[in-house]
């Protein structure tokens, strides 16, 4: 038993230091492409750390959104950047040295070290044992409609936060669409191998997504994880050059983007009228309400993430249009 604990501690130490080391290399390396690859690796190691910290839900979200989709967004932006910027030829040292004066650099470093020390001191002053809200969550879990505590917090106890969260997602696509141009077609590179792979993979991903959605009620999973897998399937389809629906103009797509937030708002209004409090579910119906919210949220999250990926690939508005 003790040996296992020792191995685990050694593993934790290694993982922690690797995370820090990777971040260091990622942020202070002279090759942007390498930085992005390191970022994705970093995300995957973070996912392992979440598992070690008994946070499988966060691990799933990190692997799919943090490493996966953010990584895809970064890669696609980098490719675009390279076509725009002649100084970014791969293989050469790409980046200018920090323009900061040496003295300023050392001041910044000194400040960082002091801040690190102060924060570390504060963290170490925390009590070594603290219940947080775990007792409150556990005692009310039975009336939440689900048996998985993370889902209970996200969809029920703190459902109002998640409502605003859905608004943030809607904002992100509204924002990318308003900043990027009107065309939809990103340049797509296809390869036969990738195509076959994607044909095999997409249905699997959609199944995984549906499974995660369903399982979220009583085990790790739920709308965010399911939605991001769905988004990933979409990204793969785009990469394989599927003649994707015209993302921006299609009314159906807009409906899918709005479905999640709209379901939250509608349910909030309904419960406000019937129960007197927004998002207060009657215990008997809580499970159904949560499943409905999660299903529509999954659709919206998946579509949003896909649309963010496609949207970031499009041409930008060149000139000032709004302002006379």
């Amino acid at each position: 038993m003790e040996a296992v604990g020792l191995w685990q501690s050694a593993f934790d130490l290694m993982l922690g230091f690797s995370l820090f080391g990777l971040a260091w290399r990622m942020l202070f390396c002279a090759d942007l492409f390498k930085s992005i690859v390191l970022f994705i690796t970093f995300g995957l190691l973070m996912a392992i750390a979440w598992v070690r910290l008994e946070a499988p839900d966060v691990a799933l979200a990190e692997a799919t959104i943090g490493a996966g989709l953010t990584g895809a967004l970064l890669m696609s932006a980098f490719a675009k950047l390279r076509t725009l910027d002649n100084s970014l030829k791969s293989g050469q040292p790409l980046l200018p040295r920090p323009r900061l004066h040496v003295i300023n650099f050392w001041i910044a470093l000194l400040f960082t070290v002091l801040l690190t020390g102060g924060l570390a001191y504060a963290v170490l002053s925390l009590p070594s044992h603290s219940p947080g809200l775990s007792d409150a969550v556990m005692s009310q879990l039975d009336s939440s409609g689900v048996t998985h505590p993370v889902t209970a917090v996200l969809l029920n106890f703190r459902g109002y936060d998640t409502l605003l969260e859905m608004a943030v997602l809607l904002l992100s696509i509204q924002s990318v669409w308003s900043m990027a141009g009107m065309s939809d077609a990103g340049e797509v590179h296809t390869s036969p191998v990738l195509n076959v792979l994607i044909q095999l993979l997409s249905p699997v991903l959609i199944l995984v997504s549906a499974y995660l959605l369903w399982v979220g009620a009583h085990a790790p999973g739920g709308a965010f994880q399911a939605g991001s897998i769905l988004g990933a399937a979409g990204v793969l389809l785009v990469l394989s050059g599927r003649p994707l629906f015209n993302l921006k103009k299609s009314w159906l797509i807009r409906l899918m983007l709005v479905a999640g937030p709209a379901a939250f708002i509608a349910l909030a209004t309904l419960t406000l009228i019937n129960e007197g409090q927004l998002l207060k579910y009657p215990v008997a119906n809580a499970a159904n309400y949560i499943l409905l919210l999660e299903t529509l949220a999954t659709v919206s999250i998946g579509t949003t993430l896909l649309a963010l990926f496609v949207g970031s690939q499009t041409e930008a508005v060149q000139q000032d249009q709004s302002h006379q």
């Binding site: 959104i65 775990s134 917090v153 965010f224």
Partner: peptide
């Protein structure tokens, strides 16, 4: 798990 839910929000 409350911080976990917060972090999922944060990741999004």
């Amino acid at each position: 798990v409350v911080p976990q839910a917060m972090v999922i929000t944060g990741i999004v």
